[in-house]
Simulated scan of single mutants.
Amino acid sequence: MADVAKLAGVSAQTVSRVSNGFPGVLEETRQQVLAAMKELGYRPNSAARALKRGEFRTIGVILFNLSSTGNMRTLEAVASSAAREGYATTLLPVTAPTRDGVQGAFTRLGELAVDGVVMIMEVHLLDAMTVALPPTAPVVVVDSDAGDRYCVVDTDQASGARAAVEHLLGLGHGTVRHIAGPKESFAAERRVGAWRAALEAAGREVPPLLRGDWSAESGYAAGLRIAADPGCTAVFVANDQMALGLLRALSEHGRRVPEDVSVVGFDDIPEAASYMPPLTTIHQDFAEVGRRCVDGVLRQIRNDEAERGTTLVPTGLVVRGSTAAPPPRSR
């Protein structure tokens, strides 16, 4: 820094202000300093600067399932929101969703020097009181029933599932079958509960539940059972990828969508509009989830008020070509 100051003909303090992006430096002086930095090959030492300030401008993300479309879109949204705030993102995948796995991840993130943490949980850990996170760590949890102990951000799973069922009932279907996600998934269980409650509130039969693992292959396997049931005219699927597998199973068995069977998915992935037929689905605002996660972490880092408890991001029904009134014989 002293060499840069000497070459540019300014003080070391001015070099520091330019390298840190502080205002109050004349443009001509700033350009002189930048030219000197380039000539000397000077780069600010971000590690030393972080130690001096006590902040690293980095948010850590603990994530259990890298193959889940919803998790990856949430991760992308968190990273984008963090970047807009001038923060980098450090990802730490956890292969074993256990108490030791989570607490070990916190230890490793501490060694990697992060200012706060976003946890994309998906599985039932915090709500079972099996994991105790460091009380002073700025933490926001996504997709978990952590109650009032932590700042939680989640999509309004129940409202979305209810909208899917009510849409199908409103078209005249007698009841709605459901292909759910894995039982250990918090989001999947929220959607199951809302599906069942919506049918019961309407006085309709609650059919047997089918489960998948979020993949198109599991949706296809469940779809083969649905395709063999001539009485089924409507299906709510817990995500769009499993809905894709269901569409294939129905097509292979000569069951037309939506003429014979209506299908609603969940997520509104970019490819949903290109399914055959285009998929009616529940839209999740992943960008807003990411923004609220980063906002929650930064509020804690800056010692602002950060509400504990759950913040729900609204969902929306997107009607496309995969839903219609049931065939006349089923009405």
Rank of each mutant, 00 (worst) to 15 (best):
K6M: 11
A12W: 10
Q13T: 14
Q13S: 15
T14P: 00
T14G: 00
V15Y: 01
R17S: 05
V18K: 04
S19F: 07
N20M: 11
G24C: 05
G24R: 10
R30S: 13
L34T: 08
L34H: 02
K38A: 15
E39Y: 05
N45L: 09
N45G: 09
S46D: 11
L51H: 09
L51T: 08
E55R: 15
F56S: 15
R57V: 00
T58G: 06
I59W: 02
N65I: 06
L66S: 11
G70W: 04
G70N: 13
M72E: 00
R73C: 03
E76I: 05
A79E: 14
A82Y: 01
A82P: 03
R84Y: 01
E85A: 15
Y87A: 08
A88R: 11
L92N: 03
V94D: 10
P97H: 08
T98L: 01
D100Q: 15
G101C: 11
V102Q: 08
G104W: 03
F106H: 14
F106E: 10
F106N: 09
L109F: 03
G110W: 08
A113F: 14
A113E: 13
V118I: 12
M119T: 04
M119F: 15
E122G: 07
A128R: 15
M129Q: 14
A132V: 13
L133E: 08
P135D: 12
V139F: 06
V139R: 01
V141I: 15
V141A: 12
V141L: 11
V142A: 02
D143V: 10
D148M: 12
Y150M: 06
V153T: 11
D154G: 02
T155P: 01
Q157H: 14
A164G: 09
E166Y: 02
L168K: 09
G170H: 08
H173G: 07
T175D: 10
R177Y: 13
G181Y: 01
G181W: 05
E184G: 12
S185I: 00
R190D: 04
V192Q: 07
V192W: 07
G193C: 05
A197H: 02
V206K: 02
L209H: 05
L210M: 12
R211W: 03
A216I: 09
S218F: 04
L224Q: 15
R225Y: 04
D229E: 15
G231F: 00
G231L: 10
N239P: 07
Q241G: 02
M242A: 08
G245C: 03
S251Q: 13
R256I: 00
R256F: 09
V257Q: 07
V257S: 01
V257C: 10
V261F: 02
S262Y: 06
V264F: 01
D268L: 05
A272H: 03
S274Y: 15
Y275D: 04
P277E: 00
T281C: 03
I282K: 06
H283M: 04
H283F: 11
Q284S: 05
Q284C: 04
D285H: 01
D285A: 05
F286C: 00
A287C: 04
E288H: 01
G290T: 06
C293F: 06
C293Q: 00
V294R: 00
D295V: 02
V318W: 07
V318E: 05
V319H: 10
S322N: 02
R329I: 10
